[in-house]
């Protein structure tokens, strides 16, 4: 019966998204009058989950699941859902969760709604609100199957604290050999990722060339932000593809999005509209971004950004 939530960790620490999906699972459990069970993979200390509404934790320790493999993870979550008799399984919108969720849906023969942004509006029929048309609209989607999988959009539901205690028990799954083997990982561990970032500093063609990104990185550093860019900037090779955000790039759902020298084309805005507060810095007061932004500065990035860095440093020093 209990709502099952897959709580992801990285290097032994729960991701913020894990605590957000736990909060979400608690809201669903309240609606259904049941409890929340979390499943964790290779993490020792799970006590924090109790603070976000989890009643029970199924702890999996398995060296075969040491690096992410979508099949093995999906099989493990499936077996946990079956053990718990869960009718609802909640996952996040991380790259890994989006990778395993469709496999899990097939395994459980479950309808899957991705990019869900609110607690269900009704549990019978089971109806959730999700973003569609790349943030240009919302869709109310009804899940018709007995078992339902919900993928929660990052930063949409938020963290809801709940003082409680989670009991923990060991759980082992039987998994088949993965047909996909990780050979090498190339990942900057010292940088905030766009997916996890609370703040994203993004720059466009207005910056004129890759040599001018120093100030963008510095601004991001001061704010503890991730860096991003518009599509032409990555197409021109000024910045890596992984920084391209927008309708055909990565979606951004941060608390603050700062756009510097970005015009605000519809395809760009579609991908970043889910951000809560948007700031634009652009020389052209007519740039479409000003219609989408909450705060704007009409000015030259080469003058505004260095000054803003100084102001923010002074502000941070006072905090």
């Amino acid at each position: 019966m209990s709502v099952l939530v897959y709580t992801e960790s990285e290097q032994g620490v729960f991701k913020k998204a894990a605590l957000e999906v736990a909060s979400y699972a608690k809201a669903v459990a309240n609606q259904l009058g049941t409890t929340v069970t979390a499943i964790t993979i290779n993490i020792d200390d799970v006590t924090v989950l109790g603070n976000y509404g989890v009643d029970k934790v199924l702890k999996v320790s398995n060296a075969q699941l040491g690096s992410f493999n979508a099949n093995g993870y999906a099989e493990t979550i499936k077996q946990a859902a079956e053990k718990e008799g869960s009718q609802v399984v909640v996952v996040s919108s991380s790259a890994d969760s989006k990778y395993l969720a469709p496999l899990l849906a097939v395994g459980l023969n479950a309808g899957y709604a991705s990019n869900v942004i609110e607690a269900p509006t009704s549990t019978s029929p089971f109806t959730v609100k999700r973003t569609a048309f790349t943030n240009k609209a919302f869709e109310m989607s009804q899940i018709n199957t007995d078992v339902k999988i919900i993928g929660v959009s990052n930063n949409s539901f938020g963290l809801v604290e709940n003082s409680g205690n989670a009991s923990a028990e060991d759980f082992s799954s039987s998994i088949s050999d993965s047909g996909v083997k990780v050979e090498s990982v190339d990942k900057a561990t010292d940088k905030v990722t766009i997916a996890d970032a609370e703040i994203v500093v993004s720059a466009g063609r207005g910056l004129k060339g890759p040599e001018n990104w120093g100030m963008i990185e510095e601004l991001a550093d001061v704010l503890g932000a991730a860096t991003a860019c518009s599509k032409p900037v990555s197409d021109l090779g000024w910045r890596p593809h992984s920084e391209h955000v927008g309708q055909t790039g990565k979606p951004v759902a941060s608390n603050l999005y700062i756009a510097i020298g970005i015009s605000g084309a519809i395809q760009h805005l579609a991908g970043i509209n889910a951000s809560k507060v948007k700031v634009v810095i652009n020389t052209d007061a007519e740039a479409p971004f000003f219609k989408a932004a909450d705060y704007g500065v009409v000015g030259d990035a080469f003058e505004v950004v260095p000054q803003l860095i100084e102001k923010l440093k002074a502000f941070k020093a006072q905090q």
Partner: peptide
Amino acid sequence: EIDGGKETVST
């Protein structure tokens, strides 16, 4: 592509 980087897999 993974969050924050990329990985190479064989299959």
